[in-house]
Design a protein around this nucleic acid. Structure first.
Lengths: 195, 195
DNA sequence: TAATTTAGATGATACATGTAATCTTAAATG
DNA sequence: CATTTAAGATTACATGTATCATCTAAATTA
């Protein structure tokens, strides 16, 4: 059936990225094989190396892809007011049962952060970059330092992880509610002079 | 060289648990093989199934083992004052560079939480139990609900994950500092009537 | 249109994996 | 002391893994 047009190669490439981004978040990076990804993308494993140099390469690329997907809307927002609203919406969606259950399309850092942290090289790098990017978005433009953005990010990620660890929706809800309350505290009481 | 005395079997058993608890935290559960664990415990992989039914069994047992290790001192504390002090010490150690760098002996939930959350069955269960246990310890005895304990746990875990994702000690320090500030806010401003 | 290129399929490689059967030997038991 | 038992070593097995060489047919290009 090969060979396909340049445009269709791009499409295949994107299908691989999408499939990888979903599977990696759902099952974890180590637990997902290149063949799994290719099958989910509707291809056999052989063609993989026409698109990526190695699995490590795919990890980095698909993670960036996933972060772009989640974050690009927010970054487009221009005004301070628009950003603030986006931020609140994002947090509300983040701390929801839907997000707890659908890790496949959820926050890449929450799903793969621990695994990326153990990596060295490209995957670790894109993880660190993603953190910068997200902390910047969660931070108020008027703020001096990155502290509150970082703390907010930590709280969001931690809360989702806890909620996913629980064994019932009720327990998950308790975790989410605690997360929401804590986020409010950060927003209302973060010291002005802290970084 | 077999066979060994009952007492020495226990010792072997514990060596396996220790090795697993360390390797799982350092490299991740999926990335660590039974053979890796047995080698680290000073044995060949053949004897493994005299001690555990399966890798899944080992995951659950070693995780419980690690949590016990980390938490038992705190649980022994009787007085409210003693507990409070233990809590503060624990948080200070938790949010330290040492903890960021030494995941091997660090918080099991921070190191394996995401992976356990993806599991079903025994490993997921012990993960959920660990969460209950730790949130209970982080919670003030005078409090009504588990909310603040949960939020504190989320913040601790999230902060460590972020710090481990960074690419320099300075960035890691920024994350840790943000975590400390946020913890203070939770301690000072958590609403009295919230669960 | 003929020659060339290459995306993806097929199949192979070399190795790691979890698990189990079998063997060895010393401890436990009588 | 003789017998039984079982901890750990050795080996085997079936499966899964990342990667690569080769094949194919269609898209490009000359």
């Amino acid at each position: 059936m090969p060979r396909m047009s340049e445009a269709e190669k791009q499409r295949s490439h994107n299908r691989i990225l999408d499939a990888a981004a979903q599977l990696f978040r759902e099952r974890g990076v180590e637990a997902t094989s290149v063949a799994d990804v290719m099958k989910a993308a509707g291809m056999t494993h052989g063609g993989f190396y026409r698109h990526f140099e190695s699995k490590e390469d795919l990890i980095a690329a698909s993670f960036r892809h996933a972060v772009d997907d989640v974050v690009s809307d927010m970054e487009r927002e221009e005004t301070s007011e628009g950003r603030k609203k986006e931020r609140q919406d994002y947090i509300a969606k983040y701390l929801s049962q839907a997000h707890v259950q659908d890790s496949r399309n959820g926050c890449p850092l929450a799903a793969m952060g621990t695994e990326l942290a153990r990596t060295t090289g490209a995957p670790h790098q894109v993880g660190a970059q993603a953190l910068d990017r997200m902390a910047a978005l969660l931070r108020d433009t008027s703020e001096t330092g990155s502290g509150r953005g970082l703390a907010t990010m930590a709280l969001l990620m931690g809360t989702i992880t806890l909620a996913r660890l629980t064994e019932s929706e009720e327990e998950a809800d308790r975790a989410l509610e605690a997360g929401r309350t804590a986020i409010e505290l950060l927003q209302d009481h973060w010291p002005k002079d802290r970084s």
